[in-house]
């Protein structure tokens, strides 16, 4: 079984190497998609032992993840892919517990959840935003989760083939949930720890940017399918 960690990265030269080392202990290969970074992200990732793909134009996290997925499936013949972050918010040692349900063929998709037992230092505003996200997801995707926009996931080869991300920016997280429902994939949640630091909070989507995500999803649902 080939397990591949997929890491979309944009201007992450300071943290990418640690994230790769962290993930590599628990997967066979690490694929980094450098989304047209302006810094040394690609070089750092390559020297940390990852396979690096480069977007010549910045296309957003969703697009980068899809590029990594296609490469892992077609070229590396991956059996399991793990979505991992470049900024060190995730803990690589949790990868085995995420891929375990897939190995045992109990699920096609395993979603990390910050609210299943493990402690996090999530700021209050994010907690509220996440609750709203849960409600939004239940209404629009018809899928009930304890945590909706957690980027830590594991997908079986079959699930990764079925789920094609077309939303370029951050709304891809909702699109993945949508497709799980539409393609009738078996999913399960597993507790994960997400570490918030000042640095990562400044970069990852703020609670306000959730509105932008909602806009992208609505646009996709109501306009682009005409």
């Amino acid at each position: 079984m080939i397990t591949v960690a997929l890491i979309p990265a944009y201007n992450e030269e300071t943290r990418i190497a640690d994230a790769i080392h962290d993930a590599r202990r628990f997967v066979d290969l690490v694929v980094v998609v450098d989304d047209c970074s302006k810094d040394q992200t690609a070089e750092r990732a390559r020297s940390a032992g990852a396979i690096v793909l480069r977007h010549v134009i910045n296309r957003g996290q969703g697009a980068a993840l899809q590029t990594a997925t296609e490469y892992a499936l077609t070229v590396l013949k991956a059996d399991i892919v793990v979505h991992f972050d470049a900024d060190g918010q995730m803990d690589g040692s949790e990868i085995p517990s995420l891929i375990d349900p897939i190995v045992r063929e109990e699920a096609d998709v395993v979603l990390g959840s910050r609210f299943l037992g493990k402690q996090t230092n999530m700021p209050m505003t994010r907690l509220v935003a996440n609750r709203l996200g849960r409600l939004f997801t239940s209404v629009f995707s018809g899928i009930h989760l304890t945590d909706t926009h957690n980027g830590f996931r594991a997908l079986s080869r079959h699930a990764a083939q079925e789920i094609t991300i077309t939303l370029n920016r951050m709304a891809h997280a909702s699109q993945i949930l949508d497709l799980i429902k539409v393609k009738k994939l078996r999913y399960i949640e597993r507790p994960v720890t997400i570490r918030y630091s000042q640095e990562t909070l400044a970069k990852s989507p703020s609670s306000l940017r959730a509105f932008g995500i909602v806009k992208d999803i609505l646009k996709d649902k109501f306009l682009t399918h005409v």
Binding site: V52, L53, H55, V56, A63, T67, T166, N168, K219
Partner: peptide
Amino acid sequence: EQTEKEITKLVRKIAIEEVE
């Protein structure tokens, strides 16, 4: 929107071909 998606596809194709 269509153009955006086409650009993404192109960027993806280049990324995968370059690494190969």
